[in-house]
Every structure is written in C-alpha cells, then in structure tokens.
Computed example of a mutant assay.
Amino acid sequence: MAPASSSSSSMRLLLLCLLGFCVAVSHQQSTDPCGPARVAVASLVPFDSTSFRCTAVWKQEDFVLRYKNTGPSVWSFILSAPDKGSYVAVGFSGKGAMVGSSAVVGWASNGRGTVKQYYLGGKSPDECTANKGLLKLVKNKAVVVSHSGRLYLAFQLSTDYPQPHLIYAVGPDGNLPSRNSLQLPVHRNMASRSFNYTAGMASNAGGSGDGTFPMERKHGLLGMMGWGVLMPIGMMTARYFRQLDPCWFYSHMAIQVAGFAVGITAIVLGFGLNEDGLKNVNVHKALGIAILAMSSLQVMAILARPDKTSKVRRFWNWYHHNIGRAAILLAIGNVFLGLSIAQEVSAYVVSYGVFVAVWVVAVAAFEIKRFCADDD
C-alpha cells in the first residue's frame, strides 16, 4: 500500500503543479505591461498604434491607457482592462465629475465587440443615454477586442486637446448591457483622475500618483518663481525703497539675478518637453524667448550703467525702467498662459492669481504714496 500511497501523493503534487502552472500562464496572459513592444492587438486596431505613450491609469482594476496625438486635431486611445464579462468605460470631463460628461463604453460578447458613446446625464442607468454625448468620435475608428483575457477598447477623438479629467468605470462581472436597450448596468467600480497628456501621468488631486514630480511641473514652477514672482518683487525694491540707500540697490540686484538664474533653468527644462497636441505652445515659447532677451539686456545694462552725473543717464534710466516693466508684464501673462496650456490644477492658478492681485494692490498703493509725496 505504501508505494500506491506514494504514487497517489506524487500524482496529486503533479496535478497541483500543473494547475499552478496553468494559473500562472493565465495570469501572465491577462496582464498588459507598458513597454517597447506593440500592443497585443495592434493588427486589429483600425489605426496605427506604434509609438503610443502607455501608462497604468487605474491600478486597482488594472486599467492601462495608450494614447497619442496622431494627426491635426486627432487623438487616438487604446484602453485595456481584464475581460470579466463586463463593460469597460472611459469618460472625459472638464472638472472630474461623472454627471454631465461623455464616455466611450465597450464590451465583447460571443466574439463580437460593441463600442458606444454615452452621455452621463445622471447616476442612474436611465440617465446614461446611448449614442449621445459631446465627444467627436472619428467614424469607423472605434473597436473593442477581447484577447488573452483582456479587453482592448480603441477609438479616436476629433479634438485639439482632450479634456483634462478621465473617468473610468467597469461593469458588474458577467453582466453586459442589454442588446436592445443598450442600458448600462450600474458600474461595479469607478474612478476619476486628472490626467496630464504631456507627462502621461494620472492623479487624484493634482499629484503625480506615483511619487514622481513631472518635468512639466518643474518647468512651470521654476518659470513662475523666476520670471513671475522674483522679478516683480525686485522691481518694487528699486522703485519704492530708494530711501534705504544703498540697501535697495544690492537687494534689487540680488533678487533680479536670482530670478534670472531660476528663469533660465525653467527655459532649459522647457525646451526638452513633449509638445505633441498642445495648443498655443509656440506663443508661450516665443514669449519666453522675448522675456529672456529683455532680461538679458537688463543684466548687460548694469555693466554699461553710466554715472549719475552723465548726460546719457536719463536715457539709460528710460531704457532700463521700461524694458523691465515690459518684461514683467509679459512674464505674468506668460505664466498664466503656461498654466492654461498645461491645464494645471486650480490650486496653482489660484495661488499665482492671489500673488498677482496682492502685487498689483501693493504697486497701486506705493504709486499713490509717491504721487502724494510729490505734491507735498
């Protein structure tokens, strides 16, 4: 009996190993890692999917998003997720709210894939209307494919730049929309993420979501601090604190040189950023170069600063003051333009807006004080 028992145990062990091997293979096949390889269903997607950016956008449900600006006002997307006999959806929203947004929904049944746009007018199934929505789907460029345990939802949007918040949803396992009414069952899980198309990063509330700090945000914050904060403050020290001679001069010099150095760092980072599909980037870049040129002239002007008794001193003053004011006004405008291009979270826009408002009020108060002092 002992040999039989041993043989039986060996068979059980072999079966368990084989079962474990099969589970491992199945799990491996159901994953979709981002990498240099083409998407598994590239030949079944109705557009070229090479060189797409790829990122895990919803790790809890293993959602992977590939995307690219593939033409003038055309953005292509491939969303992959585990195929559990349910629908998968990705919506586009201006502020991250589900209600009022539009979504692309896909599912597969009996080897047949279905892709529909839905307008999410409310939170109940009756308020999610099929074949309605604000998204401009490119005709005949939407498909859903089931492959190796995953769904691949591919589609193209006709837009200059997609909305900055993506909404993901997955339906209940084994429960698909009705073939006749196309009504969506209540989702099993959903998530809303702000998405930076330039950096390829998703976040819940403006963070990077994976512990990194995107280069685009470094560029923006350095540019804001150098050109948009330090330069205006440096101007105030020179214009309104001359009674503190010579402290005002050295303070003015130190602040402006620091702002110039920080600003140059921001520009260097900016030239290395991905600009695909971004509107007004050329305007933003041109303004940045103009600000750099003006600031460089200001730095060089210090080397050619004439003596106070010189006859040309008043012309130098006119040049130095007006070029500086123009650079500051352009810098403030360019900071807001950059925030708009990056579609940054409102906290950055509001924070800088508050600084500019306080700076304008302070300048107005100091100018009134100077005017009253001159009258006296």
Rank of each mutant, 00 (worst) to 15 (best):
L15P: 00
L15H: 01
L19P: 00
V23T: 05
S30W: 10
G35Y: 13
V39N: 15
P46W: 02
T50Q: 08
T55A: 10
D62E: 06
V64C: 01
V64Q: 01
Y67L: 03
A81V: 13
S86Q: 13
V88A: 15
S93A: 15
G96E: 02
S102G: 01
V105N: 00
N110V: 05
T114F: 02
L120G: 03
L120S: 04
D126R: 13
T129L: 07
K132C: 09
L137Y: 03
S146R: 08
H165E: 03
G171S: 10
N180E: 09
Q183I: 15
Q183Y: 13
R193S: 12
G200K: 04
G207R: 09
G207I: 07
P214E: 02
H219I: 01
L221T: 02
M225P: 09
P232V: 06
G234N: 11
G234F: 08
R239W: 06
L244I: 11
Q256N: 09
E275L: 06
D276Q: 12
K279N: 12
V281R: 03
I289Q: 12
A304H: 11
K311G: 12
K311N: 14
R313I: 11
F315A: 15
W318D: 10
N322F: 14
R325K: 13
A347T: 11
V349A: 06
S351G: 08
V363Y: 08
F371A: 14
A373Y: 01
D374T: 08
